[in-house]
Design a protein around this nucleic acid. Structure first.
Lengths: 330, 330
DNA sequence: TTGTATGCGTTATCAT
DNA sequence: ATGATAACGCATACAA
């Protein structure tokens, strides 16, 4: 069923049908009624593809995510959805499964007029990303990393981690371990570590390499890295760069017949849904992922509409002090 | 840059360019090379919208989810992504935020030739859903609920819950509480409860209404419902219909200065990422959500290609016996 | 106020 | 083997 058919049934021209569908131009009431009647009767809905081709606008925004089944990513997408809905816009998700090649491919594919704009959540932005992105005509906003020349919404990873460290230090800890993640991930791997290092030096504490362990994003990795640290030393506190890592570490500590936080204090980052309900409730810092998504989408829409937007926005964090950190008595 | 421009630059006709892009028809090697050269030089990529209009195929499948930031939904989407990728297909997600009206709207919108098929993950399928779905020409597969006339991929909620109950019964428990969810959700609200009831009656145990509490899907609700039960009784075991509910319940029990599993055993369902790492590690049953997504997508593609597919498939579950259930000594 | 005709970028048919 | 052209379904400029 196409516009022509409706026109025939209603005894008007296709143009008139189009006009009533879009409330554009002048249509005498009588004909409008007739058209609406036919539309209702046959349940006509326009072909969105044809509309898109004509209008050069799809009302779809593309979202490139490394892995949707991750609390971080899905919360961001939740935020994006919220504002997309307000703009009557659908979202097309490219779930790249952390494959760089897939990210590039998606970027190219989506940009071919399939979407009106792209939100890219990359853990790592390579030269190749950059080159492809530059050749793309649809607006792009980056999430999670500052990328030159693109509006970027980033978490204040550095200060969030620093705040966490300050909390630990304020509790009197001096031997503080660190469980991190590969520097491929700039935000989590580099910035959070730098905050740890700086906090230590600002407190005039030595950096001890044996207290630093680098793993990946899994709970298991948290366990292993903690194991590695305990093989050499027993810090009084450990900052993990992620809630999952923290939980893994706690398990390891427990398996060593030590307790959290009495023997070793632990902190995470992210404030996952369950962290509050963990035993002990995890002291962590909440990164406002949904807010990130909301801001990214808002920026994208103003970028689409105005062609311009502020270049970098950093979203807030908030310490969540719970029970996994203890006072260290001297 | 469109096909016409490439044609001009390469000194051939648009048709020829199209032919080399799609490897269709005959093109003499010399011209093919010329065209490929131009394409590479200018970085031409075809307009996907125009292709879709012409081909009546978008290579996009629509996925309607109640809430993407849910472990269940995002795992299913992960599975869908995996097979979509194998079919060179993108996925368009409509995140309905549990709004029935949004689901209907998405269903209508997506079906207008915007997608080649739809996977619908509905918690509740109303008469209205049904009516709209019937008027839609693109193939639909349902996930999570059996819907007459549509291929459906469902979890074996009934038997999974029953297996859980049998495990509890085998451990010698006789006073078993139940924390459930509203019957609006057929799979979780109705089937799992029925399994509880049947297991009890098969074991010749009385159903005690004071041991049954119905909440929603949140951790907090698990806490509140457990509170409600403890106000009247102290069962030796409680089956929660969801891991989150179970975790809430455990917190409540702990706040009553009781311990899990020594005083009260608890089980969940779902096997969330963290359930294994909870203290105590949660005995639960794993529903294979990713597999569900994979099967749904596979079915959708064969439906698109062959027009036919088996009507109902139920995906496996597996008991995860961990430490939240204790032997009840008589 | 309405209708006709054209074009959006592609593919496919039909001559050549 | 290749090119001209129609068609996909819609919106719009322009004519009436």
């Amino acid at each position: 069923m196409k516009i022509k058919d409706i026109a025939k049934l209603a005894g008007v021209s296709p143009a008139t049908v189009s006009r009533v569908m879009n409330n554009s131009g002048y249509v005498i009431d009588e004909k409008r009624k007739a058209v609406e009647k036919v539309i209702a009767e046959v349940g006509y809905t326009p072909n969105e593809i044809a509309k898109s081709l004509k209008n050069r606008k799809t009302n779809i925004i593309g979202v490139i995510v490394p892995k949707i089944s991750t609390e971080t990513a899905s919360r961001v997408v939740d935020g994006i959805t919220e504002v997309a809905k307000a703009h009557d816009c659908q979202i097309l998700i490219a779930n790249t499964d952390l494959q760089i090649e897939e990210e590039i491919k998606s970027l190219k594919f989506l940009s071919n007029r399939l979407v009106d704009g792209i939100i890219m959540m990359a853990t790592e932005v390579t030269e190749q990303h950059y080159k492809v992105a530059k050749g793309i005509s649809v607006p792009i906003v980056m999430v999670g990393q500052q990328v030159d020349g693109y509006p970027s919404i980033i978490h204040d990873d550095y200060h969030a981690a620093k705040a966490m460290m300050k909390h630990i230090l304020a509790k009197g800890h001096q031997e503080i371990g660190f469980i991190g993640v590969s520097p491929h991930d700039i935000a989590v791997g580099i910035k959070r570590k730098q905050a740890y290092l700086d906090a230590l030096s600002e407190a005039k504490l030595e950096v001890d390499d044996q207290l630093i362990a680098i793993g990946n994003f899994s709970i298991e990795s948290g366990y292993e890295q903690m194991e590695k640290i305990l093989a050499h030393k027993q810090p009084t506190a450990v900052m993990a760069v992620t809630d999952q890592l923290a939980i893994g570490a706690i398990h390891c500590i427990r398996d060593h017949r030590l307790t959290v936080p009495e023997d070793i204090s632990i902190t995470g980052m992210g404030d996952g849904k369950l962290s509050k309900y963990f035993i002990p409730p995890l002291t962590t810092v909440r990164l406002h992922h949904k807010t990130t998504g909301i801001m990214a989408a808002k920026n994208l829409f103003t970028l689409i509409e105005n062609g311009y937007v502020k270049n970098e926005m950093v979203v807030d964090f908030s310490l969540r002090i719970r029970e996994s950190v203890d006072e260290k008595e001297k």
